[in-house]
Design a protein around this nucleic acid. Structure first.
Length: 498
RNA sequence: CGGGGUGUAGCGCAGUUGGCUAGCGCGCCUCGUUUGGGACGAGGAGGCCGUGAGUUCGAGUCUCACCACCCCGACCA
């Protein structure tokens, strides 16, 4: 089938869009999600003003709406890190080349996507500086300096920063030349303790995805081929998107002693012997914003779960008489007192329809309309963004009913995402079945695999599906590899990755 | 890195076999009338036609080179 190119497509679409306002319910300028999810995705992000393209290739600008969502995520993670006694720090952006090359697997993993500074102050640098693709190396150089005794452990530091990876192809939030994330790096005296840390971090990630972004998270371990360069074990939270592709939501790595041996992070243990620290690292990036858009958005635009919505309730006064505006402001004050984030849209010269569409596009969970009718009856008209449902609520008790409604929405959005994921999850026992699922609907596929990387590669080549993880709760199941028929012990989860 | 496409007003685009003062829609500004699902009228502002060279009496239009961006595939959070 011939794929029309983006440009010729938007050309014809722009024409139909301009004229189709009355013909369909389509949001002006937003490609329907079902028609082309990738165009829809970009349209929604740009037009909701979450983010925009920048003059730098592959790098985007996080606009206030996008950044505010990121700040809620940061707050949620910081809270959890604090409980784990992880402290925030900041390390340099530029890393001396010699440091980066210390861990062999690590360099090899990142070499193709490094940005390198060779000139500084108009002069060739004696040693090149690497723009960090991640900070293991520079942090561990310092860890070596700071850690000498078992009493210096555990050391648990996090930083919120930006990293650069020279991606060939970029995509809003999901894959960028520069992205924002947090990277935490811990060092421990014992492996059981560091492994516990790996899992605790993974739990925190899953919690934030589920409780804040309302997206179910599948926890598991990565295959050898998919693990982080330099890690012994990589654990992951995998998310299912509505188009049947999986997104790696965050990763938490057991680094063993790989880095502590190359960076000489050594300490004297309780017995007085020299030992190398057991390390972990874990990260969560702005890719999660992409997951949020994909998972919940619809043809009307963005849909934000209340917990990460900068505006949870928008009040639109219908008409511009002063009493009405005053009513709206009073409601806002009352709602703010109970912790609801509210905006009153008093902009003049815009029709009601225009405002409704504008706030729908921006994903505000609840729209509250106050007009003559509402004031007379004492009941406000409420529109719920994610379901499109409308309700009538007693104005006098909004400060009690709206917080409850927001919780209800948060829960309903998760339920909906969970149903979608279940519908997108299959268990197969033959390769024919496997291929059929990949052709028809994709999604998560649970299949027995012998854990031979050769099979993994073949499956990926033939179906585009790679191993996403071995779920943490997977039970041992003796059987035959879905591809080669050799003995297999576990059912791995496969999917096409974003 | 391979394949495709596009550069003309803030955005989306049209611009005929080269021709005179470069156009349309949306958006923007001013004034007025409006506001229960993207309001209307009148007036107005806004252009090194991606960059450079060439052909020509004359280039948005033809030729060449370059640059940039977008889309599709192999790698990555």
């Amino acid at each position: 089938m011939k794929q029309p190119t983006h440009q010729t497509k938007t050309k014809s679409e722009a024409q139909s869009k301009a004229q189709s306002g009355t013909a369909t319910f389509q949001k002006r300028g937003v490609t329907p999600k079902s028609q082309n999810i990738s165009e829809w995705y970009t349209d929604v992000i740009v037009q909701s003003e979450m983010a925009d393209y920048s003059p730098v290739r592959g790098s985007i600008v996080y606009r206030p709406l996008g950044y505010a969502v990121w700040e809620y995520i940061q707050a949620a993670l910081n809270e959890r890190f604090k409980k784990m006694e992880i402290e925030n720090t900041y390390f340099p952006l530029l890393i001396p080349e010699s440091l980066l090359t210390k861990e062999k697997e690590h360099v090899e993993g990142f070499a193709p996507e490094l940005a390198v500074v060779t000139i500084g102050g108009g002069e060739q640098l004696a040693e090149k500086l690497i723009v960090r693709p991640t900070s293991e190396t520079i942090m561990y150089a310092m860890y070596a300096k700071w850690i000498h005794s078992h009493r210096d452990l555990p050391l648990k530091l996090n930083q919120w920063n930006n990293v650069v990876r020279w991606e060939k192809r970029t995509y809003f939030f999901l894959r960028g030349m520069e992205f924002l994330w947090q990277e935490a790096h811990t060092a421990h005296a014992y492996h059981d303790e560091s492994w516990r840390q790996v899992l605790d971090a993974l739990d925190a990630y899953a919690e934030v995805y589920e409780e804040y972004l309302a997206i179910p998270a599948l926890k598991g371990t990565k295959s050898t081929a998919e693990k982080f360069a330099g890690a012994d074990v990589t654990t992951t939270v995998e998310l299912m998107m509505p188009d049947g592709k999986a997104l790696q939501g965050a990763t938490s790595h057991d680094l063993g002693q790989n880095f502590s041996k190359s960076f000489n992070i050594a300490f004297q243990n309780v017995k007085g012997e020299q030992d190398f620290a057991w390390q972990t690292s874990f990260g969560y990036s702005t890719r999660s914003l992409g997951a949020l858009v994909l998972a919940h958005g619809d043809d009307q635009g963005l849909v934000l779960p209340p917990k990460v919505a900068p505006i949870q309730v928008v009040i639109i006064p219908i008409g511009d008489d002063d009493q009405l505006i005053e009513q709206a402001q009073m409601q806002r004050a009352a709602l703010e007192r109970v912790g609801v984030r509210v905006k009153v849209d008093t902009r003049e010269g815009m029709s009601l329809g225009y405002k409704r569409n504008a706030w729908e596009l921006k994903g505000v969970p609840v729209r509250l309309e106050l007009g003559r009718k509402e004031v007379e009856t004492g009941f406000a008209t409420i529109a719920i963004r994610h379901s499109g449902e409308k309700r009538s609520l007693d104005i006098a008790t909004l400060d009690a009913t709206l917080p409850k409604l927001l919780d209800e929405i948060q829960g309903a959005m998760f339920e909906k995402a969970e149903e979608m994921r279940q519908a997108m999850t299959s268990t197969v026992d033959s390769y024919d079945e496997f291929k059929k699922v990949m052709e028809e609907k994709r999604g998560f596929i649970h299949a027995l695999w012998c854990e031979d990387p050769a099979c993994e590669t073949k499956i990926k080549e033939e179906t585009k599906a790679s191993t996403r993880c071995l779920p943490l709760d997977a039970k041992e199941e003796i059987g035959k590899c879905v591809y080669c028929g050799k003995p297999a012990k576990h059912r791995w989860v496969f999917a096409q990755a974003y």
